[in-house]
Amino acid sequence: MKLIYLLASLPFLGILGGIFFANRVEPFVLGMPFILFWIVLWVVLTSGIMAVIYRLDPANKEDEAG
């Protein structure tokens, strides 16, 4: 178990945990009600987080380059 893998728990905390605090309409962000903005934000952050994990994961270093 590598520490970098713990990053992957952030989307679960943000989406499943954060939703209790983000469950509101105001303020509007980028035209979206806050709850929609929160979910969209986490979908985008999840991509970023997984990209970081992929880069740093030693499991992707040795085998297959493609």
């Binding site: 992957a8 679960f12 986490w42 979908v43 999840t46 997984m50 994990i53 992929y54």
Partner: peptide, 13 residues
């Protein structure tokens, strides 16, 4: 719908 897709792909990794 947005949430489960993102979380499912995390596990898929």
């Amino acid at each position: 719908i947005l949430s489960y897709g993102a979380l499912a792909y995390v596990m898929g990794y």
